[in-house]
């Protein structure tokens, strides 16, 4: 599904070049559930952002669904990730001013889906996550677990092939965390490719493969 070849990313700090990612080679096949682990500052989130095309890299090649990402223009890249990638964040990153319904609907608006279709799709999603009753609430009226559920619903609304999750359970208690992780393995079984960043061995064990990062390098 995607392939990273010799990816480097750095920042220049005075005369020193600090590497955030160093010689990353990674192939992800469709249907995989990968966990990225490593200590703080090892580049986990950076790698996830590079895969999600939110962040650029300085060197190397990245192929996503046979498209050479490193050669694409900003607009094409946006088009690509809008269609195929969903994001889940540790801090949920819901929009405070919008209701649950509107939050889930937002990505569809940016993909120019027609209003009637949007309505049906959001209704399906609310149904599936059992949050129909909460659709008119604002994020601040929900518990953390529920907010993350909305976050995941939002990520899945545009039927992405790849789900990127940056410590999705980091702000949740263990019971809520477990529910989210069960949901992830279920989604994975339905065919969604998942890459998650996590600190927890237990969460990592839900995945089919673990990648360890240290100082921007993949530890084998």
């Amino acid at each position: 599904m995607l392939e990273l070849k010799k990816i480097f990313k750095w920042v220049n700090n005075g005369n020193n070049r600090v590497f955030l990612l160093k010689d990353i080679n990674l192939t992800v096949k469709e249907g995989e559930f990968i966990s990225i682990m490593g200590p703080s500052g090892s580049g986990k989130s950076t790698l996830l952002n590079v895969i999600g095309m939110l962040d650029e890299f300085d060197e190397g090649e990245y192929e996503f669904l046979y498209e050479p990402v490193h050669k694409l223009k900003e607009k094409q890249r946006t088009g690509l990730y809008k269609r195929y990638i969903g994001f889940v964040f540790q801090a949920y990153h819901l929009i405070d001013e919008l209701t649950v319904y509107e939050n889930i609907e937002t990505p569809l608006i940016y993909q120019d889906v027609k209003a009637s279709e949007r309505k049906a799709m959001v209704a399906d999603m609310l149904d599936r996550f059992n949050i129909v009753g909460k659709k008119d609430l604002f994020p601040s009226q929900l518990s953390g677990g529920q907010q993350q559920l909305v976050g995941i619903a939002r990520a899945l609304i545009s039927k992405p092939k790849l789900l990127l999750a940056d410590e999705p359970t980091g702000n949740l208690n263990s019971k809520q965390g477990e529910e989210i992780m069960n949901l992830f393995s279920e989604l994975n079984k339905e065919g969604v490719t998942i890459i998650q960043v996590t600190h927890s061995e237990k969460n990592a064990s839900y995945g089919s493969k673990i990648i360890n990062l240290l100082d921007g390098r993949i530890e084998l």
């Binding site: 939110l54 990153h93 001013e97 993909q111």
Partner: peptide, 13 residues
């Protein structure tokens, strides 16, 4: 800023 960031990630041009 945060809201704008979220929207950008969700595909806002």
């Amino acid at each position: 800023t945060k809201e704008i960031g979220i929207r950008r990630v969700l595909g806002a041009s």
